[in-house]
Amino acid sequence: MSATDISMSPAVRDFAHRHRLRWWEPLPWIVAIGFFFLFPRHLGIGTEILVTILFALSLDLVLGYAGIVTLGHAAFFGLGAYAVGMLAHHGIWSEPLSGLVIAAVVAGIFGLLSGLILLRTTGLTLLMLTLCMMLLLEEAANLGQTWTGGYDGLPTVPIDPILGRFAFNPLIPDVQYMYILCVLFVGFIVVRTIVYSPFGESLTGIRENTLRMHAVGAPVRKRLVICYTISGAIAGVAGALWAQSNAYVNMSTFSLDRAATVLIIIVLGGYGRLYGAFIGAVAYMALSHYLAKIYPTAWQLGLGILLVCIAMFARNGILGMFDSLVARLRGKRVGP
């Protein structure tokens, strides 16, 4: 232990150490790069998993860390997808990287404006208002036939080559995969930095005890609105990536099914854990794929049974189960 560590209080030392990179943290990225080389014929499902992870990270920021209960997070996903899709489809702007920035700005502004209103409420009221907000945007996409394509969506979203060199190929999505992986890495660094910052610590405090945070003088509502805005921007980027990689946009980006799916992923992997989004997304996509093969007409039954078991017997998802197992093993080792 260094002299600097000795001079720190235990709380400050613990907070400082949490910023440090753990030995296992590069593993998901090594696996993702390995997947690119080992399974070139399955890069399509790989890109979908990566987009889902980024979307789940954005939800985990508001739900897992700030404690904002929402069932309408797909509103930001859809806004990002339609922002990129409409600009490209109508020939206004189709550059991919700047398109992500535009999607983030559009979704972030909507997150700021809606957060100022919605975050005045809590609990079931907030849950229903976020759901209504998403459904209103879905109906707006349905009615905006001229720009959004209405119910049929936008069947073609032409995207320029990345940096003018790497063109998207729908049949061989190798460029899409690496492009989305790089964006996911940047998004993860942003979320990780926020979570381990004093701002992130205050969000956790708000989640655990809002009244106490008010008592110590923390600007609770302001920080929740900022968190909601950042989360919306990240979800907008995920939606833009979905539109760019699939080369089309439809109303499913605003659907309740998408909002519920990402919530299930967070519950399955473990909320408020950063890597819970990774574990949950991979587990959900893999289970959905193989259960649909085994029982195409009722594959959701098996997934539902698993989720019930997770909710009843596992504390905080798969990562929570892993933590409990590690704790028991350590207890046995140090025991008599």
Rank of each mutant, 00 (worst) to 15 (best):
V69Q: 01
E139T: 12
P161E: 06
A277V: 06
D174L: 09
S252Y: 11
H19P: 00
H19G: 15
G91C: 11
F278P: 00
Y271V: 08
I30C: 08
M178Q: 01
S197W: 05
Q300P: 00
Q145F: 14
D14K: 15
A218T: 12
I172H: 14
P26V: 05
V282S: 01
T253P: 00
L307R: 02
D174F: 14
D323G: 11
C309T: 11
P158H: 05
H90R: 11
A75T: 09
V62Y: 05
M285N: 13
G304T: 06
F76L: 12
M1Q: 11
A88F: 08
I318T: 05
Y65K: 09
A83H: 01
F39G: 01
V308I: 15
I234P: 05
C182M: 15
I305Y: 01
L87S: 04
D14S: 15
L224I: 03
L119A: 09
R333C: 02
L38Y: 08
L241Q: 04
Y284L: 15
G187V: 07
V69F: 13
I92Q: 08
L203E: 06
M251H: 11
P296Y: 06
L127R: 03
S255C: 13
L131R: 05
L224W: 00
A259L: 11
D160F: 03
F37G: 06
R258H: 06
G232A: 15
I53Y: 07
L129I: 13
R165P: 00
T204C: 01
G304M: 06
G280M: 13
L21R: 09
L100S: 01
G80Y: 12
W147Q: 01
L50H: 06
L50M: 13
F110G: 01
V308M: 15
G123V: 11
V186G: 02
P10E: 04
L154N: 07
L287G: 09
R192D: 09
H19T: 11
P96D: 14
I318F: 07
P40M: 06
A81L: 04
V183I: 15
I172V: 15
V262P: 00
A243T: 10
C309G: 12
L211C: 07
E139S: 10
T122Q: 12
Y295C: 00
G217Q: 06
Y151P: 00
A141F: 04
A311P: 01
S114L: 15
A56L: 10
T210P: 02
N250Y: 08
L154C: 07
K293I: 14
I117W: 10
F36Y: 15
M128C: 09
G123E: 08
V216H: 03
G239K: 10
T156S: 13
G80D: 08
F188A: 12
E25K: 05
Q244G: 03
I30A: 15
L61I: 05
L303H: 05
G85S: 03
V334N: 05
F254D: 07
R22I: 05
V282N: 00
L319E: 12
Y177I: 10
M86G: 02
G149D: 13
G280K: 09
L325K: 03
V216S: 02
L100H: 00
F15A: 14
A292G: 07
R333Y: 02
F199D: 14
T4S: 09
S255V: 12
